[in-house]
């Protein structure tokens, strides 16, 4: 089953319509549920990042994503809140570009991924950032991720370039490796911390 929350779901009202959880704004203060979309060129490691985060696995044999895959993972933060990520891992191929809004519409978080060994994928990441700025939710939390950090000897995009671009666009930046698991959990924990909390009033 795609979605196995480690924490009992509080809100089980029927959902209708939209690729969004119906209660996007109806989270209680201790249990957040957020829609997260991964965007980026095909082959940069989006699926590997998700599978590392959700299942703790890394499978080097490439399995090209078709359409988009849906996975969930819940994490507990130190202040005892839990965040359930409903993750859309998109395909990133050109033929699906026109359909991307289907997946990022209403997303609270967008993770834009590139491959540090590929300047083209970095350019593609910038395309996605612009697209999200134009068409995404206005208060979307965006993260810029340079993946395959384990391949540092083949690096072609410098850390500084990543930091600079992220800063200019108000994004959170991190380099990860799905292969070694480096910074994968940190990525999602950082995102969780930056989420707007529902007011307690």
């Amino acid at each position: 089953m795609g979605c196995s929350a480690s924490v009992p779901e509080k809100n089980t009202t029927g959902r209708l319509g939209g690729l969004n959880p119906d209660n996007g704004g109806a989270n209680d203060t201790k249990n957040l549920r957020v829609k997260l979309v991964l965007l980026g060129d095909s082959g940069v490691g989006k699926s590997c990042i998700v599978l590392r985060f959700v299942r703790g696995q890394f499978d080097p044999t490439s399995k090209v994503t078709v359409g988009a895959s849906f996975l969930c993972q819940t994490i507990a933060l130190q202040d005892s809140t839990t965040v359930k990520f409903e993750i859309w891992d998109t395909a990133g191929q050109e033929r699906y570009a026109a359909l991307a809004p289907l997946y990022y519409r209403g997303a609270a978080v967008a993770v834009v991924v590139y491959d540090i060994t590929s300047p083209e994928s970095f350019a593609k990441a910038q395309y996605w950032v612009k697209e999200l700025q134009k068409h995404g939710s206005p208060d979307i939390v965006m993260a810029l991720v340079g993946n395959k950090a384990d391949l540092h000897e083949k690096r072609e995009v410098s850390v500084q370039d990543g930091i600079d671009y992220a800063e200019k666009n108000g994004m959170f930046f991190i380099e990860t490796s799905a292969k070694t698991a480096d910074n994968i959990n940190q990525l999602f924990e950082e995102i969780a911390k930056r989420l707007p909390r529902p007011s307690t009033s």
Binding site: K63, V64, G67, S69, F70, D89
Partner: peptide, 18 residues
């Protein structure tokens, strides 16, 4: 054929234009 030959469908539930 499309579904069975696209490995990613086996990994998790998916939603795809077809």
């Amino acid at each position: 054929n499309f579904v069975m030959s696209s490995e990613s469908f086996r990994t998790s539930e998916s939603f795809s234009p077809i």
